[in-house]
C-alpha cells in the first residue's frame, strides 16, 4: 500500500436544483460564485479542492464558518455527494462504491467525531461507544469488551453505565471520540470536535487527543475554525475560504509565508516563538559577511543549531551583545541571526 491515505482531486460541490448545469457552466466558462448563484440559483459549497493526506498525519482544515470545511469533510464518507471530482480513501475510489460497500467502509474504515457530539440520548455510554460495532453485527460480549477498552483509553473508566445527558460536555465529546475509535478505523474525521467546549476543557481535550494520536497514529482529518488549534495539532494545515483552499502547508510555512492577505490577517496575531525556526530567519553567513565585512568577528558569538525555535534564540540572545551564529549539520556555521532579525522574526516579518 502506498503512503497516501486520503486523496482529493478537483472536488466540487454545488448545491441547488440545477447543480449539474451550473457545474458544466463553471467548468466551461469559469464563472464566479456570485454568477452561479445569479444564473442557476445554485450555491457553490466546495470549489476545486485537491489535497493528499499521508498515513499517520493530522491534517487540519481551517476556515471560518461558511467556508465549506464541514461540507468538505462529509464528502470523504459520502454523507454529501460531490458534484464533480475524485475522492480516494485508502487507494479506493469512494465514488465507485455501491451502497453496501460504502456502508461497510463507513463502519470499518472511518471513524467520525461531530461538533455537537451527536450521541444517542437513549443509550448508555457503553452502547453509544459500541454503536459502530453493533451496526457491524458484532456480538454483545465483544461490544462490551471493546467499549470498555476504548472508554478507558479516553479516560472515562467507570462511566460506561451512565447516560450521555449525565455527563459534562467535555466528557460527552470524549465519548464521541471513543465511539469513533471503537471500530479501530484507519481514518478519523473530526468535524470541529472541540469548538463547542469551554476554552479550558478544549485545551485539556486537545492535549488528550495529541497523546492519543501519538499512541494510535490514526490518519486524521481535523476540521477547525481556530487557527491556534490547527497549529497545535496539525502536521499540515489547509486554509479554506469560500469553498476554495487558499494555502496548504506546515504550521511554520503558513505562519512565515502566508499565501495572501486573507491568511496574513489570520496569522498576524499568532505567536511565532514556537513556530518559526532559526533557519528561516537567519541571514546566510556569506551575505552577512559580504554586508558587514569579512573582519566582523563572530568568534565570541554564541552558537545555536538551525532547528532551534525563536523562543530558544531569545534565551540565547539575552546573554550576549553579539549576534547568534547558527550551526547546520555537523556543527558547520551556516548563518547569523542578529538581534534586529530576531525581533523582526518574532514580529512575523523575515
Amino acid at each position: 500500500m502506498n503512503d497516501i491515505v486520503i486523496e482529493l482531486e478537483g472536488v466540487w460541490k454545488i448545491f441547488g436544483e440545477r447543480a449539474g448545469e451550473a457545474m458544466a457552466a463553471v467548468k466551461a466558462e469559469g464563472l464566479a460564485k456570485s454568477e452561479v448563484l445569479e444564473r442557476f440559483g445554485a450555491v457553490v459549497g466546495i470549489a476545486d479542492v485537491s489535497f493528499n493526506v499521508r498515513r499517520g498525519e493530522i491534517f487540519c482544515i481551517m476556515g471560518l464558518s461558511g467556508s465549506g470545511k464541514s461540507t468538505l469533510v462529509r464528502h470523504l464518507n459520502r454523507l454529501i455527494e460531490p458534484t464533480a471530482g475524485v475522492i480516494k480513501l485508502l487507494g479506493q475510489d469512494v465514488m465507485s462504491l455501491a451502497e453496501s460497500e460504502l456502508r461497510a467502509m463507513r463502519a470499518q474504515k472511518i471513524g467520525m467525531v461531530f461538533q455537537h457530539m451527536a450521541l444517542l440520548p437513549h443509550r448508555s455510554v457503553r452502547d453509544n461507544v459500541a454503536y459502530p460495532l453493533e451496526i457491524r453485527g458484532e456480538p454483545k460480549g465483544r461490544r462490551w469488551d471493546v467499549s470498555q477498552h476504548t472508554l478507558s483509553l479516553v479516560g472515562l473508566d467507570g462511566f460506561e453505565d451512565r447516560f450521555p445527558r449525565e455527563l459534562s460536555g467535555g466528557m460527552q465529546q470524549r465519548v464521541g471520540l471513543a465511539r469513533a475509535l471503537a471500530s479501530d478505523p484507519d481514518v478519523l474525521l473530526m468535524d470541529e470536535p472541540f469548538s463547542a467546549l469551554d476554552p479550558l476543557i478544549r485545551r485539556q481535550l486537545q492535549n488528550q487527543f495529541m497523546a492519543l494520536s501519538e499512541q494510535l497514529h490514526k490518519t486524521t482529518l481535523f476540521i477547525t475554525h481556530d487557527l491556534d488549534e490547527a497549529i497545535r495539532l496539525g502536521t499540515r494545515i489547509a486554509i479554506m475560504k469560500d469553498g476554495r483552499i487558499v494555502q496548504i502547508g506546515t504550521p511554520e510555512e503558513i505562519v512565515t509565508d502566508p499565501a495572501d492577505d486573507y491568511v496574513r490577517d489570520f496569522v498576524q496575531d499568532i505567536s511565532k516563538l514556537k513556530l518559526v525556526f532559526a533557519h528561516t530567519i537567519m541571514e546566510p553567513l556569506e551575505s552577512y559577511r559580504a554586508a558587514a565585512g569579512e573582519a566582523k568577528d563572530l568568534s565570541e558569538s554564541p552558537r545555536a543549531p538551525e532547528d532551534s525555535d525563536l523562543d530558544r534564540l531569545v534565551d540565547v540572545s539575552i546573554t550576549t551583545p553579539h549576534p547568534i551564529v547558527i550551526t547546520g549539520a555537523g556543527g558547520r556555521d551556516v548563518g547569523v541571526v542578529t538581534k534586529d532579525r530576531l525581533l523582526r522574526g518574532i514580529q512575523g516579518g523575515k
Partner: peptide, 24 residues
C-alpha cells in the same frame, strides 16, 4: 446530527430507523 452520526458509522436505513429514529 444524530441521524448523520448513525449514517457516518454505516447504519443501514433499517438500523437507522429501528435503533435511532424510532426510539427518539
Amino acid at each position: 446530527s444524530v441521524v448523520e452520526a448513525a449514517r457516518a458509522f454505516g447504519a443501514t436505513r433499517w438500523q437507522l430507523l429501528r435503533g435511532v429514529e424510532l426510539p427518539l
